[in-house]
């Protein structure tokens, strides 16, 4: 059942890509969640769709575009979108979350226009929306590997700065941290991770991979460092299950990944409930 993944190149690609995405998406997600910005992932995934749709539209008119993967245009849009979100968050100050619906709806609006101009939906677009095991080409894999390496190195290097900034922006500023460009760098990373994950999880579900494993990790972690370990473990379980079952049962992997992430979350909540109940019992018995 598993060896088939090593027989076919495309399956091996999907597997490697899945392992990497299941690692970096939840780990970056830890910062997104504690900064209360989990919906940013949603906004950025939708703006990625805009880029992909524009590419598909342009490919109808200019042959040169069919030579390239639409995901690059998606990445460019995601990065631009993240810069806009950053800017809008400062403009609206107390209503920072407004940046998210603005970017999200602008992205979907444009995407819909591009898609209808490009003769509507096709199977290609379907795989972008829901992910596909067969979609990871060797070029895609290379891109995903490069992004994963960049993300892991930067997470390691800027861990303490991002930790400080997400806990207490004012104190971080006083200690001399350059908050602005650290935030900017973080947003760009999020945009890149989302664009990289879309091949496997799909646009509609990529944000789930950045937030659900983190929500589960919160039920287990006893320190901030442990959050990353648990989030990565839960991310791996979800993604690998999604790819295996997705392939063998011919289901869109994105859906299976998210269902597994939800199951893990429910089990984590249940575990915490049981622990609390037994603690209460111990207290009462004393």
């Amino acid at each position: 059942m598993i060896d088939v993944f090593f027989q076919y190149d495309f399956l091996r690609n999907a597997l490697i890509a899945g392992v990497l995405i299941g690692l970096i998406a939840p780990m970056l997600g830890v910062f997104l969640v504690v900064k209360r910005m989990s919906l940013v992932a949603d906004a950025l995934s939708h703006i990625t769709l805009t880029g992909i749709a524009l590419h598909l539209l342009l490919a109808n008119f200019f042959a040169i575009f069919s030579l390239y993967d639409p995901i690059y245009m998606g990445m460019v849009f995601a990065v631009i979108g993240s810069l806009f979100i950053n800017q809008l968050r400062t403009v609206y100050g107390h209503f920072k979350e407004l940046a998210i619906p603005i970017i999200l709806s602008a992205g979907v609006g444009l995407a819909v226009i591009f898609i209808s101009l490009a003769d509507g939906f096709n199977t290609d677009l379907y795989s972008y929306l829901f992910g596909s095991v067969a979609a990871v080409g060797s070029n895609d894999l290379m891109t995903i590997i490069i992004i994963a390496v960049i993300v892991l190195v930067l997470l390691f290097v800027f861990y303490k700065e991002w930790f400080f900034l997400s806990f207490d922006e004012e104190q971080a500023a006083i200690s001399g941290l350059k908050g602005k460009w650290l935030e900017l760098l973080f947003s760009i990373l999020v945009a890149l991770v989302i664009a990289a994950s879309i091949r496997i999880v799909g646009i509609l579900l990529v944000s789930a991979l950045m937030t659900l494993p983190v929500a589960s990790a919160m039920q287990w972690a006893k320190s901030f460092k442990q959050m990353f370990v648990y989030a990565a473990i839960f991310g791996q379980i979800s993604v690998l299950s999604g790819i295996f079952l997705g392939f063998h049962l011919d289901l869109a992997p994105g859906g299976v990944i998210v269902v597994f992430a939800v199951i893990i979350l429910l089990l984590s909540l249940l575990k915490n409930k049981i622990v609390k109940a037994s603690l209460n019992r111990n207290v009462q018995n004393r």
Partner: peptide, 14 residues
């Protein structure tokens, strides 16, 4: 989700 130790460590980051 941070421990007391982790919070105090931040004082050294700058």
């Amino acid at each position: 989700p941070a421990t007391v130790f982790e919070v105090v460590s931040m004082g050294l980051f700058g």
